[in-house]
Design a protein around this nucleic acid. Sequence first.
DNA 1: TTGTATGCGTTATCAT
DNA 2: ATGATAACGCATACAA
Lengths: 357, 357
Amino acid sequence: MIRAPEPGPRRGKATIEEVARAAGVSRQTVSNALNAPQRVRDATLARVMDAIEQLGYQPDSSARSLRTGERRALGYLAPADDPFDPNPLMGGFLEALVDAAGAEGFRVLLFRPAPGARDARAVLDEVIAARQVDGFVLSDVLEGDARVEHVARAGVPFVTFGRAEAPGGGAAAGGALPLSASWVDVDNAAAVEAIVAHLAGLGHHRVVYLGSETGLPWMKERRAGFRRAASAAGLERLESVAPLDDPAGVVAVAREALGRRPTAIVAESDSLALAAYEAVRSEGLAVGADVAVTGFGDAPVARVLHPGLTSVRLPLRAIAGEIVRRLVGQVRGEAGPAEGLSLAAELVVRESSGPPR
Amino acid sequence: MIRAPEPGPRRGKATIEEVARAAGVSRQTVSNALNAPQRVRDATLARVMDAIEQLGYQPDSSARSLRTGERRALGYLAPADDPFDPNPLMGGFLEALVDAAGAEGFRVLLFRPAPGARDARAVLDEVIAARQVDGFVLSDVLEGDARVEHVARAGVPFVTFGRAEAPGGGAAAGGALPLSASWVDVDNAAAVEAIVAHLAGLGHHRVVYLGSETGLPWMKERRAGFRRAASAAGLERLESVAPLDDPAGVVAVAREALGRRPTAIVAESDSLALAAYEAVRSEGLAVGADVAVTGFGDAPVARVLHPGLTSVRLPLRAIAGEIVRRLVGQVRGEAGPAEGLSLAAELVVRESSGPPR
DNA sequence: TTGTATGCGTTATCAT
DNA sequence: ATGATAACGCATACAA
């Protein structure tokens, strides 16, 4: 038989007062036992810890937060919907972020702009004004991102996944904010360079880049990496640009790209690589044997595809770890590493990238 | 120029006291203006609201929580890693959950078991003991799920995505808990039945179910739905069972299934449908024209595939909405709907399911 | 080493 | 309709 849960806020959990009574000490000593154990005699400490264990006591997070000002929570603003590419990485990154935050004693508070809201500043203001978090993690950040500027202006610690500042440019004119005081990103350019190097090493000599028409910074970096590496390796280098929101159109472009008779297709994303597969097959050719295809991101589909898709895996756990490290450092007021950090992606070679026939 | 953020907990945000001073009233009146506007004279109300607006005041969430006992936060225990099928739906469900919670004035607190932890009870206890949330959303729930029992025993409100109780069985023997006091789920069986009915309507007569060897309840429901609908429609009904963790093995099974010469393949998931695509193509046949293939879940890949994959779309927004409605009802102590709710998935017909040749 | 007193910002009770 | 007072649970400065 189980008793019905008590009504009211407390829900029957222990308070520091009850622990103190159980251990025969003042609540002060309990607090000390938790926050400054060295100030408590061993015997007492043991007794207190025992009572704590016994009662399953943990400080009420609200009371502690009210007193200390720290929330032990990091805010993550979930990216807006993108029906075309519901960022398959977000899930993986979020998990890594939650783990990394948890290791530092922080939880992750998730929120989104109200549906239909013009931008995210309103909800950011709510979270800030209600003091629900100690800092923010902002992802999918663009150059001159309004969210970034807003949070920076509010004086709340934050770290971005991706740089909100053009690589070359420091602070802009005027009293500009240190927008990218701390960012972590995957080295998109280097990742594509690794792909191209891999292909060049296999003997490929005519390579087409299958990209999209977005101006997203990470996409631009990938393209730049392609150009650099292909030139460096002395490859014949072609480029195709696919539309954004039209699967059929994408395949059409992929077929056109294939029509230029490359020995390899370097796709900007795994989705585009999938379109390349379709194009190659529609010509009666075999991916990997007749034409090499590579992707980007190493989405789940990369493993399931046949032949398996050569791609690059984003170091999401490392990124999340570094983001949390920096953010928690800021929260604690430490003068930690303020510069940005680019992390290398890992090339995952599968059967889609064989040598040219 | 921007001033450096103030140190300390307050970070320069307004308190109720400051608002009161600015409006020339007591803090009580400010509180009333916010929580019981009808008790405040219009003129005063206007003055107070003005000051609130002016100062960008919002109640400190910790102070309010300490006083009222409500956290205005819902806890979501993120599912454990599954490298084989990193639940592509989770992202979509989470977003819907955050939106639904936000509409009710709740945030979502995300957490996971410590990496390497034997089970999730420890972290649940932490969140409960620290009173960080008003209730929990538990997903991917199994029959007799330990997490469910644990939360139920703690007397904390919760709602599950999926039923933690066998469909027929009420309370078990002894003082069993009302484990599934409130659950919401997608009607897996009905969804597959809709698929089969669709195929039967097209004239298919020999159909193979491509399933996996998991005993997960939702998978069992899908299979049951297949059997029921196929029998009802008088179809020749076959079944194949794929291994879990081996893409190559999966395709082998899919080929074997195809070897039984069905006119259509009903896959248990979109991933398995992808394997079916591979099998069909490896035989030189065309998906949709020679053999119909259907999936389950309507993952992003379903749209990108060629031909587009006929699948069923999970009503994630509706599910999240119902979950939040029930959970918030419990939190508020309303005697809301305690029974479970099965929501219909939506059949999405694409080119992969043509009539038999 | 331990206990006493105070305040964090808010809301509820009660008086006016 | 408004204001004074108390209390939520905790941590800290200070006294013992």
